[in-house]
Simulated assay, not measured.
Amino acid sequence: MEIIMSVAIGLMFMAAVYLILSKSLIRIIIGTSLLSHAAHLLFLTMGGLGGIAPPVVAEGVTVADYADPLPQALILTAIVIAFAVTSFFLVLAYRAYQELGTDNMEQLRGTEDYE
């Protein structure tokens, strides 16, 4: 299962880098969001996908049987922060589009040699 997740994470990172390198501001924001989701999956996979029992130590449950709660808690916090940052970027992009009438990064920079 870890091999499949590793390939999926690699594909997500590849798509995120491709989107971040584009000229459209909306694609950059989507790429940043996709990059954060890929990092969350990477962290969850590194924490281990095995674990049958919930992360509660009780009678008769060995250490190898329960899931590690630390990566799950950290990922939940990171998801909330990533959602807030993505929302802020979307509002900022919408306001920039209202003011300037474009989402092309070359035009937003103010360079004269854009196409």
Rank of each mutant, 00 (worst) to 15 (best):
M1C: 12
M1Y: 07
M1W: 02
E2R: 01
E2T: 10
E2D: 11
E2S: 10
I3L: 10
I3P: 08
M5F: 13
S6V: 01
V7R: 11
A8T: 13
I9F: 11
G10V: 04
G10A: 00
G10H: 13
G10T: 06
M12F: 12
F13Y: 07
F13N: 10
M14A: 15
A15D: 04
A15E: 14
A16F: 01
Y18V: 14
Y18H: 08
I20M: 07
S22P: 00
S24D: 13
R27F: 06
I28G: 04
I30Y: 10
I30A: 03
I30W: 10
G31M: 07
S33W: 08
S33A: 15
L34R: 05
L35C: 06
S36M: 01
H37D: 09
A38N: 06
A38S: 07
A38E: 01
A39D: 03
A39G: 00
A39H: 08
L42V: 02
L44H: 13
T45V: 14
M46H: 01
M46L: 15
M46N: 06
M46P: 00
G47S: 12
G48A: 02
L49P: 09
G50S: 07
I52M: 06
I52T: 14
P54C: 15
P54H: 10
P54T: 15
P55W: 05
V56Y: 09
V57I: 15
V57K: 15
V57Y: 10
A58M: 14
G60P: 12
T62K: 07
T62M: 04
T62C: 09
V63H: 03
A64D: 07
Y66W: 07
P69Q: 01
L70S: 06
P71W: 13
P71Q: 07
A73W: 00
L74N: 14
L74Q: 13
I75N: 07
I75K: 05
T77W: 10
A78P: 06
A78H: 02
V80N: 05
V80C: 06
V80A: 04
A82S: 05
A84N: 01
V85G: 08
V85M: 04
V85Y: 06
V91L: 14
R95P: 08
A96P: 00
A96F: 02
Q98N: 09
E99F: 11
E99W: 11
L100E: 08
L100M: 08
L100K: 11
G101E: 04
T102K: 11
T102I: 09
T102D: 04
D103A: 00
D103C: 09
N104F: 06
N104R: 00
M105F: 08
M105E: 12
Q107S: 05
G110P: 05
D113K: 00
Y114S: 03
E115F: 06
